[in-house]
């Protein structure tokens, strides 16, 4: 199952919010949708969910337009949205029914989902009586109540403690592994790095980076090298760039015109025994800053 976002354009008056955005998200491979505030992520998610209409472009599921985005997509908004004083069970049944379930199936689905999240005892409580972590679980349960084909999560782990984050990660990971499409938006780069295999970075309404995370990392020119050796290699390394000590070795930040292969050749010819030589691949945060910052360019 593949979600195809093709050539989406959207303007609000004179403001161009999205300019030809396109990417694919596959079942089982969570996709990280990244971008700075105002980049156009929320507008794009609203268009996918059919809350907003695009000026042009297509949203396709397995090559066909979505029959009913409201039953096919589950959404967890960044700002939590629950009726504060209504019982959780009633709210979930209401949303399950809006998403196409009959009353009996909705009731069963609520019971099953709350059990899966380990919060079945909250069925008769109101959200205002729950902790933030449990409210977030209820919110995620609501997004997944009808087992939608596509799950869109906007900052799902914000405000959660590490244990709560790990629990929700596990649930979402399982859900993706069961053959669902998961689109994930967050500013917590380590979480996205840990969670998503594919990423799309949007800047000013344009896709500037997209693809498999490892491929993207490999495509980035690496400018840092970690070296361990039996002897002092600082002097040789300094010819190629700035050197700093780290974990019993050195990190050499190569200067613009330097090359890691040339450094390795120099070290080998010096006769020093090299025990570890590793090109440090850029982290997602570095890729994000590089792509989304002032100097980022569309790929």
């Amino acid at each position: 199952m593949t979600l195809t976002v093709r050539d989406i354009y959207k303007s609000f008056g004179d403001i161009k919010a999205l300019c030809g955005v396109g990417f694919e998200a596959s079942a089982g491979h969570p996709l990280g949708l990244l971008g700075r505030n105002g980049a156009g992520k929320t507008t794009l998610m609203r268009i996918i969910m059919d809350i907003l209409k695009a000026d042009s472009g297509e949203i396709l599921l397995d090559g066909k337009p979505l029959a009913d985005a409201r039953t096919a997509i589950g959404y967890l908004p960044e700002e939590r949205g629950l009726y504060r004083t209504s019982r959780i069970g009633e709210q979930l049944i209401y949303f399950a029914r809006l998403r196409g379930m009959d009353a009996a199936r909705a009731k069963q689905a609520v019971s099953d989902t709350l059990s899966r999240f380990g919060i079945e005892e909250y069925i008769n409580r109101t959200p205002e009586t729950l902790s933030k972590g449990n409210q977030q679980r209820v919110q995620l349960a609501l997004a997944m109540i009808n087992r939608p084909e596509i799950l869109i999560l906007d900052e799902p782990f914000s405000g959660l403690d590490p244990i709560g984050t790990a629990q929700l990660k596990e649930i979402i990971r399982d859900y993706a592994a069961q053959g669902h499409i998961v689109i994930f938006s967050s500013h917590q780069m380590p979480v996205v790095e840990d969670f998503c295999e594919d990423i799309v970075i949007i800047k000013s309404g344009r896709v500037v980076t997209k693809g498999h995370l490892n491929d993207i990392r490999n495509s980035y020119h690496s400018s840092r090298v970690f070296i361990r050796a039996c002897g002092d290699i600082s002097a040789i390394a300094q010819k190629h760039g700035d050197v700093s000590a780290k974990n019993g070795g050195i990190v050499c930040a190569l200067s613009n015109d330097a090359d890691a292969n040339e450094l390795l050749a120099d070290l080998s010819s010096s006769g020093t025994q090299i025990t570890h030589f590793e090109i440090i691949r850029p982290s997602l945060e570095e890729i994000f800053i590089s792509s989304s910052g002032e100097g980022g360019n569309a790929q």
Binding site: M49, I51, A69, R70, I73, Y75, P77, E79, R80, G81, L82, Y83, F95, L98, L142
Partner: peptide, 8 residues
């Protein structure tokens, strides 16, 4: 913020 969720 329930409205945004209802709209979906």
């Amino acid at each position: 913020r329930t409205m945004e969720l209802l709209a979906t």
